[in-house]
Every structure is written in structure tokens, then in C-alpha cells.
């Protein structure tokens, strides 16, 4: 009982620290705005993101520069780029969230077991973590995606999750190593509680803060990875308004001076990643977590 109030006090203190950090609040605001845009995309977007206007309105709407009608211009099919960017937020967030869940589902148990058990189990899991780390990240994801026959958003987040879990696992493992010999763990062991219960009920809640920080910071890099994959033609399928896919489709026309197709989606990626980076940094400072990279 006493422990619980102590830990909720910790969270409260963290919130106070977080509130004082301007960048953290900015991050929170930016992230919230992206989430709201994603949720209310169909209300905000001026056009249907997949509607191709060239068939009805002809050449004038093909690759039209930004104007009052189309704030960010149109692409070769006369689709409204602003509307596509707005709907694209859904794709990026979806990937970010689901890939994070996959990484947590793999990384937390493996990291916890490695850290708690030590010995050969730890050696084995640590070896696996090191192996995945030694892989060039993007190539590994590409190879995993190639293994699945038909690409889809689900394949993308599973593939990213399969690679991204190592960061989480490392953090959890380090936490468990420092926590496993604490008094409250010893007490639980003395009570004869089953191992699983000790790991997940007693130690894990105390190891949560760094996991949250790592996962938040990870969101940014996952969103960036998704964009990179879509850019190379893997992942989101057309006409999905994935930001990376838009950059990839638009890049050919950059050199002709039709820059809006490829440049605006990049700004959207930057804004979103920036949001999660600010938020993650803020959480780290607030929760007073030191992460080993």
C-alpha cells in the first residue's frame, strides 16, 4: 500500500517536471495535433484523398502548383496533396503504434527473462540481441518484408517490430539486472511466488519508465523507417496516401520544378517525428531515465 502511493507520487512528480519543460509540452501538443488530424481526417480534408480529378477536369489539375483551391497543389492524377497528407497521418501513426506494440510484445518478455534469469538464458538472448543489432537495420527489414509474399501495412509493422524489439529488450534487461537483487524481489522470492508473477507483477512495473521513454523515441524512428520502405517501393500499396510513397512518386518530377508532390509529405514526416522526439526527450527528463544507446 505504502509502495503504491510512493510510485504514484513518482508519476505525479514526473508530470510536474514534464509541465515545466517547454519543449516537452510542445512535443505533446504536436503529437496530439497529428493524432487529432488522423482521427478527424475525413472532416478536415478538403478533398477525397484518392479522387483523381484529371479525368473530369483535364490537364489543368495535373501537377497543378499550390493555389487557393489546392493549398499544396496536386499530383499527376489531380489528387489533392493536402488531403493526401492529412489522410497519410493515419498510415504513419498506425504503423508507429502497431510496430511499437509488436516490439514491446517481443522485447519486454525477452529482456525481462534475460535480465532476471541471467546465466545461459541471458547469454542466449543477449546473443540474439547483438546479432540483430549487427544487421544493417533497413536491409534486415527489407529482407523480412521480402519473405512475406504480399506486402501490406501489416507486413510492414510486423517486419519493423521484428527488428525494433532489440532496443526495448536491452532497456528492459538492464532494468531487470539492477532490480532483481532488490529487497522487494527478495521478499517475493521468499514468499515462494512463481517466477512469472515476480517478473511481470513485481519487477516490471518498476521498470516501466525507461520502456515508455524508449517506445516513444522509437515511434519517430519507426515512422521514418516506414517512409524509407515506402520510398523504395516496399510497404504501403497505392493509392494509400503514405507519405514515403508520395515522396517516391513525386521525386521524378522534382527536377522539372514540380516540387510540391515530394516536398510537402517530407515536411509532414518531419513534423510528426519531431513531435515524438520532443515528447520522448521530455519524458526522459521528467522520468529521470538514463538510456544506454
Amino acid at each position: 500500500m505504502a509502495k503504491k502511493s510512493r510510485s504514484s507520487g513518482l508519476w505525479y512528480e514526473a508530470w510536474l517536471r514534464f509541465k515545466r519543460n517547454k519543449l516537452a509540452l510542445l512535443g505533446l501538443f504536436m503529437a496530439a495535433s497529428v493524432i487529432l488530424i488522423a482521427i478527424f481526417a475525413s472532416l478536415i480534408a478538403p478533398y477525397d484523398p484518392v479522387e483523381q480529378l484529371i479525368w473530369t477536369e483535364g490537364r489543368e489539375v495535373r501537377l497543378a502548383p499550390p493555389s487557393v483551391k489546392h493549398w499544396m497543389g496536386t499530383d499527376i492524377y489531380g489528387r489533392d496533396i493536402l488531403s493526401r497528407i492529412i489522410f497519410g497521418a493515419r498510415i504513419s501513426l498506425q504503423i508507429g503504434i502497431f510496430a511499437t506494440i509488436v516490439s514491446l510484445l517481443i522485447g519486454v518478455p525477452l529482456g525481462a527473462i534475460a535480465g532476471y534469469m541471467g546465466g545461459w538464458v541471458d547469454d542466449l538472448i543477449s546473443w540474439l540481441i547483438n546479432v540483430v543489432f549487427a544487421f544493417p537495420f533497413l536491409l534486415f527489414v527489407l529482407a523480412v518484408i521480402a519473405v512475406f509474399q504480399s506486402p501490406s501495412l501489416r507486413v510492414v509493422y510486423i517486419a519493423i517490430g521484428l527488428v525494433n524489439w532489440v532496443g526495448i529488450a536491452r532497456v528492459v534487461r538492464a532494468q531487470f539486472i539492477s532490480l532483481r537483487d532488490r529487497e522487494f524481489v527478495e521478499a517475493a522470492k521468499a514468499l515462494g511466488l512463481p517466477r512469472g508473477k515476480i517478473i511481470f507483477k513485481h519487477i516490471l512495473p518498476n521498470a516501466l519508465a525507461p520502456v515508455i521513454v524508449q517506445a516513444t523515441l522509437g515511434m519517430g524512428s519507426i515512422i521514418m523507417t516506414e517512409a524509407g520502405l515506402a520510398f523504395l517501393g516496399f510497404g504501403a500499396q497505392p493509392p494509400t496516401p503514405s507519405w514515403g510513397l508520395m515522396i517516391s512518386e513525386g521525386q521524378k518530377y522534382l527536377s522539372m520544378g514540380k516540387w510540391w508532390w515530394a516536398i510537402f509529405p517530407g515536411l509532414a514526416i518531419m513534423y510528426t517525428v519531431l513531435a515524438f522526439n520532443f515528447l520522448g526527450d521530455g519524458l526522459r527528463d521528467a522520468l529521470d531515465v538514463r538510456l544506454k544507446r
Binding site: Q52, Q149, G233
Partner: peptide, 20 residues
């Protein structure tokens, strides 16, 4: 494929594009 997808959609034909 995206252009054909859009044209077919007008007739109620939904095309799932899979880029492989």
C-alpha cells in the same frame, strides 16, 4: 495501375494493387 484503379472504381470495381 493507379489510373486504371480509379477508372474501374467508377463502375464499382475495386482493385487492390499489390506491388511486388
Amino acid at each position: 495501375s493507379e489510373a486504371i484503379q480509379a477508372q474501374l472504381k467508377n463502375l464499382g470495381i475495386n482493385i487492390n494493387i499489390k506491388v511486388l
